[in-house]
């Protein structure tokens, strides 16, 4: 219980500072809206083409806003000289990792919800009928993304060119998650049952488990110094 509580404290601290500054979320919502404009301009008004590209665009939106959001995960600690504070936290350091992953998950889910609503309005998708299955797919994909993203954000927080290095590290590793999530979303939006994409969901779940385990086991090595 102590372990879960330590993770919770990290999550709560980030939540509080975000609630008071509203720095990240406001900018991210705006960024998501801009992405929508870009997609519209890039593909033109042809509705059929938009519908065909929709699952990919949706995940492109998630990934791009995720890159911007997750890259900042450890920035507060870095810029305000609170890194030592994290390091000095007693007990198993992986609790900090899980707290940060949870915080990033919440952040991404919020942005994804907004993006979904925007997509539904602007591109005229019927979300209500697919909502539960869509949530399952997006949840599985987002966990994997946040698990690796948090780990790499902690690494790149120390690097001067972190805005460059973070996506360069994260994107290639995330290819399986992206492929699986896009394929599963495609099937869901076509109205197919989840059984048809069971292998993709299995892959996403396996990726989530692997990434989270590696993150928990290795986070100690990233935090020190």
């Amino acid at each position: 219980m102590i372990y879960a509580r330590r993770a919770w404290i990290v999550l709560w601290k980030d939540f509080l500072s975000e609630r008071r500054s509203k720095e990240t979320l406001n900018a991210l919502f705006f960024f998501a809206l801009l992405l929508l404009f870009l997609f519209q301009f890039a593909l033109g008004a042809d509705r059929e083409r938009l519908t065909a590209a929709l699952p990919g665009l949706l995940w492109l939106g998630f990934i791009l806003s995720g890159l911007v959001g997750l890259g900042r995960a450890f920035l507060a600690e870095r810029e305000n000289d609170c890194w030592e504070g994290l390091v000095m936290m007693p007990g198993d350091k992986s609790a900090i990792y899980l707290g940060k992953v949870a915080g990033n998950l919440v952040l991404m889910v919020l942005v994804e919800a907004i993006l979904l609503v925007l997509f539904a309005v602007f591109f005229n998708i019927d979300l209500a009928t697919h909502l539960i299955r869509l949530t399952a797919v997006i949840g599985l994909g987002t966990i994997g993304f946040a698990a690796v993203g948090t780990l790499f954000a902690a690494m790149t927080a120390h690097v001067r060119a972190r805005e460059l290095l973070f996506p360069v590290l994260l994107l290639p590793v995330q290819v399986p998650v992206l492929l699986g999530a896009v394929k599963a979303t495609e099937a869901v939006l076509r109205g197919e049952p989840l059984d048809t994409v069971a292998h993709w969901l299995g892959l996403l779940a396996a990726a989530d488990a692997i990434y989270l385990t590696v993150g928990v086991l290795t986070f100690d090595a990233i935090l020190e110094a």
């Binding site: 790499f152 690494m155 590290l169 590793v173 290819v175 399986p176 998650v177 699986g180 692997i210 290795t218």
Partner: peptide, 26 residues
């Protein structure tokens, strides 16, 4: 620091190879 971070990435990368393989194959 480079040694520690690279070690973590080396582990993530190697475990990612089977995932990449299956996902791309499907």
């Amino acid at each position: 620091q480079a040694a520690r971070f690279a070690a973590v990435l080396g582990i993530v990368a190697a475990l990612d190879i089977p995932l990449v393989h299956f996902s791309v194959y499907w």
